[in-house]
Design a protein around this nucleic acid. Sequence first.
DNA 1: ATGACACTATTTTAGTGA
Length: 257
Amino acid sequence: MRIATWNVNGLRARLDYMMLWLDARRPDIVGLQELKITDEEFPTDAFSARGYHVVTHGQKAWNGVAVLSREPAEVVMRGLPGQAELGARLLRVSVGNIDFTTVYCPNGKDIDHDDYARKLDWFDALAAYWQSAPAADRAVLCGDFNIVPAALDSWLDDCGDHIFHSPAERARFDRLGALGWIDLYRAKHPDRRAYSWWDYRGGAFHRGQGLRIDLVLGSRALAPQVESAEIDRDFRKKQDGFTASDHAPVYVDIANS
DNA sequence: ATGACACTATTTTAGTGA
């Protein structure tokens, strides 16, 4: 079973590209982020035609998350409790025997910006949520975390005072680890330098100037069942003339069970 | 040093992204 996460940077603008991707990679469950579209406008039919069930938590112009799945999904939670002001950023569903959550975590803009404190609060609320509503044995928490877990995950000189790299942000990420969430890509590739996001500008992709911020976290019971974990750099490139997102899709393939 | 690219808004540029 293939689980994927992907920040598409605008679902409307990415729809044709996404169809090429679904046909090529055929994931079973997908967490999507940064849809920039309302639930009413979401083009469900395009996904149904390819055999996917769709659950959305969108909003106009910004943010928005969704889950595509081969099997029907039942909504467990739309939105992070107490954090509605920061937009549509969390969607938790039950699909098959997986407790599946996808998140688009706040950006924070800069460590001096008001949004940075709000970002930290959002992560505090996320940790509190998992304490109040614990994940099932077989669980996935995937998405765009907007935190670089460690120096190996960034092309920048990692002095710790850059947004995404600060000790306060990493403390929030580490708290998820303390709650039992395992970074499945890093568990599979402990020493591999790899990125999932590259700036559109300045040829960053070809220069290797990226960040690994798109992650698939798994529960302790799920982690041993991971057969492979990969970042799909090919789908950060233009495909058939269609423009890519600035994020690559990330996969985790789980043994059938 | 700065901008560089892409997307959305009911646009005529600005805000956001990371």
